[in-house]
């Protein structure tokens, strides 16, 4: 936590004035907050209070926030969720664990195309249900070919697996050389020290250049305000991961930072009934993922683009 919140290397002067301004506003905000509590006209600020709307507007970049600012931002997120869904959620900041770089390996011999990973991910990561945002896309492929253009995205047979087909789940590859990070004009997306490419949903301007740049179609845009039934909302959230997103911003798989940075498995791995998924620390020589990389024949998608994905595929053969 502490090491994450120290840096304010750029824009020092402006940040200073901005903070003083916000502090002053906070005092006014308390006053108006009291007034607003008396008056019922709350929806005027986009379903927020005046104070929260102002706080949101001036909220700094994730990497530049002071600990107090982060505390305020997290509290605002919790209040917003309460107002919107009527649910008490917790939102925390989860910095990366030192000495860890995460990687993923997927055994395509074991994948049967059930899409349990897709649905496990949606529930865990609070994706918009009506907008049908899905971080994982399972492709049904013809055996004997790796041609993605011949893949079936919306396969829906009575039972899977289908004879003569194999299944290729695709999600964010957490590239070591991510083209999306280069593309973003405002540094709203970046690669954290544990190798995960994350997004500050409150900093993204929604230009979607990252979506054009991504060779894996891993990034998704909130074309509308995401809707989630209150009882399906996962109340355990973090800032850089699965908290409810606003409309007009980009989101994608973040290897379940809210879980994996606390030593748990990502939701897709937990949901997979066939054990096709192996997640772990690439820097730990005794990890299962290192065993696979060292002993199996693995491949990565579109390696010729030089993006250096940290997501490998392998087979039992």
């Amino acid at each position: 936590m502490s090491d994450e919140r120290e840096h304010s290397d750029e824009g020092d002067t402006f940040s200073h004035y901005r903070r003083r301004f916000l502090k002053g506003l906070g005092t006014v905000g308390v006053a108006t907050g009291v007034a607003a509590a008396a008056a019922p006209a709350r929806a005027a600020w986009g379903g927020s209070t005046f104070q929260d709307a102002i706080g949101d507007f001036f909220q700094d970049h994730y990497q530049r926030m002071t600990p107090e600012e982060m505390k305020d931002a997290l509290a605002r997120i919790e209040r917003k969720a309460k107002r919107k869904f009527g649910v008490d959620i917790t939102c925390v900041d989860t910095p990366p664990i030192p000495g860890v770089v995460f990687g993923y390996a997927l055994n395509i011999s074991k994948c049967k195309g059930y899409r349990d990973c897709v649905h496990g991910c949606i529930r865990e990561n609070n994706q918009g249900r009506d907008s049908q945002v899905q971080y994982i896309r399972v492709l049904q492929m013809d055996k004997g070919s790796m041609n993605l253009e011949k893949s079936e995205h919306y396969y829906d047979p009575a039972t899977v697996p289908v004879e003569g087909k194999f299944y290729l789940p695709v999600q964010c590859m957490q590239c070591d050389n991510p083209p999306c990070v280069k593309a973003c004009p405002v540094q709203a997306t970046w690669k954290d020290p544990d190798g995960i490419v994350v997004i500050d949903y409150d900093w993204c301007i929604g230009c979607r250049f990252c979506m054009a740049a991504c060779p894996y179609w891993a990034r998704h845009f909130n074309w509308t305000e995401p809707q989630i039934p209150a009882k399906e909302l996962n109340p355990v959230t973090n800032f850089i991961g699965n908290r409810p997103r606003p409309k007009g911003v980009v989101e994608k798989c973040h290897f379940c930072t809210q879980r994996t940075r606390k030593g748990r498995q990502p939701a897709c791995m937990e949901a997979c009934p066939t054990g096709a998924r192996v997640f772990g620390n690439l820097l730990d020589p005794n990890s299962e993922i290192r065993h696979i990389l060292e002993n199996k024949t693995v491949f990565r998608l579109k390696e010729e683009l030089g993006t250096e994905p940290k997501f490998w595929y392998y087979t039992d053969a």
Partner: peptide, 23 residues
């Protein structure tokens, strides 16, 4: 998607990803 955040592109005040981003 978020024209209200257009100020994020202003150098120093926002965070301008120059020279990396072609945008």
């Amino acid at each position: 998607g978020r024209p209200d955040r257009a100020w994020h592109v202003i150098p120093f005040i926002g965070r301008f990803n120059f020279p990396s981003s072609l945008l």
